[in-house]
Design a protein around this nucleic acid. Structure first.
Lengths: 356, 356
DNA sequence: TTGTACGCGTTATCAC
DNA sequence: GTGATAACGCGTACAA
């Protein structure tokens, strides 16, 4: 930044293929072929071109290329939000895989609003992205805004939060297995009256986690109790409020809670402490997402980890497959990743067991 | 997603201005003018064009437009990372302001590596972005990769972490004031032996916070003690380790710690607890960034809030100003936002004071 | 006020 | 293996 000259020093526009061609005394076609590694070109000419390009620091104009081919090297991503650990980590996976394949990534947030989600998709289409990766907003219930994407032949991959109906390509976590692992763990610790803080069941992730919870109970021959399942949007406050309700149940309080999200389980923990109950002694807790704050609370929170980076990478791989065979008939592809339970203090039996 | 037909239904390429022109029996020029609200066009014709455009759901090809004008409606953003609260919030502010002005946003992460930062800038230039907003990687010490940006006449705005030398347009927090507020608060609480966990002083934000710390001490006539300032990369582990060092000081342990980041202060808190010391009774703590986990720890952590959204919005405003006057001579513009201290349990005097 | 014609930088198609 | 040429969709001098 040493120079203090004018901001725009009459911007000498970057050199084009035509410049290289003139310099070398060959045609633009030849230059283009050399740079794009086309087969019908002599190795000698190719080297000459590449050498000069490097020497003059030639930068291809992606815009022109995209215009000509009707396809850019941009990959659009729509997520509900980027706070917390999950989506940044997924995006990290996406960026990594995408950049390896020569794509740049545009990230848009829907802020859990379907209207914004629609606008984001429009924006991405305008930017002529080569593909779109989506994790749905919480209140998305109809999916017409994605029809345009398909009808333009642009690869569309969902991840984590996917449409409830229809055939789509997607990468998901085995949320059911996650719910099953979490609940089974609590059962193995001797808990029998296990409550569940569930998210909106319209979202696949939440209905699946609940199903895993129910399956685990069934395995132990425990009949499900509707009074022990509380639905909410899974914020910290929601979790605290749900815990209050559970503690007021006439049938007696639960001895464990499995929440489909870490924020909710954090709220539950705080409420339990506020009421003078001990965790895990009185009530054991398990959350979902393995947020970084699960290692900060006292006790630390047991939680289900979601393989975030892998999810992002898998989504990009799927996109690349679709992009490679644009005219192929549609075959639904679903990648399912397996979750992993991280066991911490909030769910472990007191001393007798001697674990961890 | 009901349709199960082929992914690419022979993609009928979106209609162009030429299509509209043909349909209306006018020239492309007229269509172009109508759509871009040019002055020399009859109100009647204009309406006809706009109406048909809406009816046929015409979508302008931004790529072509960008190619023609040498400028897209994309705004590039380079940040060190997107974990935590700060950068997502700033990005949120950026997206909001940018979309209001008709720009889309590309976010790239440098992962604190100058090499990646360089690549990101290249990528953005290739994407022909209209402007670039940057928050520097921790180890960026030379800034030539930004010279290209300027020489192409592309507006460049730094935010939060800005180059140490040279003239740049930037939005920053008054980090010095933040450090001053934090330290003054501790002094007002009666603490006199205050340590400081500092970040790499090469980064403006850290040197400024340290300066604020020193200024506050000076105000109280307390000479700075080099043994009480520990430099690190401010991770949780760094904070814990620094706390260990401080507790082992032969001159006696500090009665308060101000860290230039919340992760470090969290590490300090954990170390203090591990050693059986009480917070704030034995050692009071203040952090920086007001991360969401500051409200989770016990006690909750006092911290300096950074006006994240405002920073993003201000950066976009600066960009828009620069873009509006591309040929204007360079005048350094710096926006400085004022921080706000959030006081919580980790820094408050025990009962006698009776606050909060 | 409207239309004509050209160029932005690249790639696809054809001819040689 | 190489080259000329025509698009891709839009903006804009210039002419009418």
């Amino acid at each position: 930044m040493g120079s203090r000259k004018k901001q725009a020093s009459s911007s000498p526009r970057p050199l084009s293929m035509a410049d290289l061609a003139r310099e070398l005394g060959v045609s633009m076609t030849t230059v283009s072929r050399a740079l794009s590694d086309h087969h019908s070109i002599g190795p000698a000419t190719k080297q000459r071109v590449l050498k000069l390009a490097k020497k003059l620091n030639y930068q291809p104009n992606h815009l022109a290329s995209a215009l000509r081919r009707g396809q850019s090297r941009l990959l659009g991503v729509v997520v509900p939000y980027i706070e917390g650990k999950f989506f940044p980590a997924v995006i990290q996976g996406i960026e990594h895989a995408a950049s390896k394949a020569g794509f740049s990534v545009i990230v848009c947030q829907s802020h859990e609003e379907v209207q914004l989600e629609r606008r984001n998709v429009e924006t991405l289409l305008h930017a002529q992205v080569a593909g779109i990766l989506v994790s749905l907003a919480r209140n998305t219930q109809e999916y017409q805004h994605f029809d345009k994407v398909r009808s333009r032949g642009i690869p569309l991959v969902f991840f984590d939060r996917i449409p409830g109906a229809g055939q789509v390509d997607a990468v998901v976590l085995n949320d059911q297995a996650g719910g099953f692992q979490a609940t089974s763990h609590l059962l193995a610790q001797g808990r029998r009256r296990i409550a569940h803080l569930a998210g909106p069941p319209r979202l696949n992730i939440y209905s699946q986690r609940r199903q895993g919870y129910l399956d685990a109970l069934a395995t132990y021959g425990i009949p499900p109790d509707d009074d022990l399942i509380i639905y909410s949007d899974m914020t910290v406050d929601d979790g605290a409020q749900a815990m209050r309700q559970l503690l007021a149940r006439p049938a007696g309080r639960p001895d464990a809670v499995f929440a489909a999200g870490d924020s909710a389980i954090l709220g539950a923990l705080q409420e339990l402490k506020a009421q003078g109950l001990r965790v895990p002694d009185d009530v054991a807790l398990v959350g979902f997402s393995n947020e970084s704050f699960t290692a900060i609370t006292e006790p630390q929170l047991t939680s289900v980890d979601q393989r975030c980076e892998e999810m992002g990478q898998a989504a990009v791989r799927l996109f690349l497959e679709l992009a490679a065979a644009p005219e192929a008939p549609f075959v639904q592809r679903q990648v399912v990743l397996e979750p992993k339970l991280f066991i911490r203090g909030s769910s472990l039996l007191p001393a007798p067991v001697g674990v961890g």
